[in-house]
């Protein structure tokens, strides 16, 4: 499902009545099944951008076009699970149409089978992140939005989860936006990298990665990272 984004300007007015531009010129198109990675300094306006894309914020200049019936799955920076519902019920609430077989398969893939009946407070952050991922995939999304889904996880766990994301994305060819600070995650998962400027955010550079995700060797990854370093846009 194609996602066509053209945000000319987004302005906040603070309590004192001063206007601040948060976004100025976010312009991109993601084709079906493409993974776009957004890299930018903290506080540059990425969260605001995601709020606009998900339809939570309509107060901006420009246009976001996606099919009206597009299903969105999102993984937030914090897992945002309902503390009063079990792991399984959290997933079912977002995806009531998901069949038992599909859920079992998803829980198995994310190694959550033993935790179906646990409450979120009984989970570690890594597990809670995986539940959030399961929820996002259970809705069989047309558009998947991942807002720093691997932040503050240890390296092994992050790598593990990253591989699972890659597998799930390739399985269903879902249009994906990934926001991250980690250049390593970006070059392993992305089809196209978008580098954002500090606030007000605009797209500074767009870097496509042509080698398919699954075929990228360590040498490829190092070469891409070296190219990016030469571009001098990686200041994160």
């Amino acid at each position: 499902m194609r996602l066509d984004v053209d945000i000319a300007r987004k302005t906040f007015i603070n309590a004192a009545g001063e206007r601040t531009d948060v976004l100025s010129g976010i312009n991109f198109v993601l084709a079906t099944g493409e993974v776009g990675v957004f890299i930018g300094p903290s506080g540059c306006g990425k969260s605001t951008m995601l709020r606009i894309l998900t339809g939570l914020d309509h107060d901006f200049q420009g246009q976001v076009s996606r099919p009206a019936d597009a299903r969105i799955g999102m993984v937030f920076q914090e897992p945002r699970l309902l503390p009063w519902r079990s792991v399984e019920d959290n997933v079912r609430l977002a995806a009531p149409q998901a069949g038992a077989a599909r859920l079992s398969q998803l829980f198995a893939a994310l190694e959550l089978n033993g935790h179906r009946n646990h409450f979120p407070h009984e989970l570690s952050l890594g597990l809670a992140r995986r539940v959030a991922l399961a929820r996002a995939f259970a809705v069989e999304p047309d558009i998947l939005i991942l807002d720093e889904p691997l932040a503050s996880l240890d390296a092994t766990l992050a790598a593990n989860l990253r591989d699972q994301i890659a597998a799930l994305v390739d399985n269903r060819s879902v249009t994906t936006m990934l926001v991250t600070h980690d250049i390593d995650d970006a070059v392993r998962l992305g089809d196209r990298l978008f580098f954002l400027s500090p606030r007000p955010a605009q797209i500074l550079a767009t870097v496509p990665i042509l080698t398919p995700r699954a075929a990228r060797s360590e040498a490829d990854l190092n070469r891409i990272k070296a190219d990016l370093a030469r571009l001098n846009v990686v200041n994160v």
Binding site: T54, L56, I72, G73, F76, E78, R80, L82, R85
Partner: peptide, 27 residues
Amino acid sequence: PALEEMAAIFAVPRSRAFRHVILPQLA
């Protein structure tokens, strides 16, 4: 508001969101 945003993004119908997201917070 974070949980309500979650419910909105996942297109949880209002009545279900009230029962599963709002009501437990008010309990």
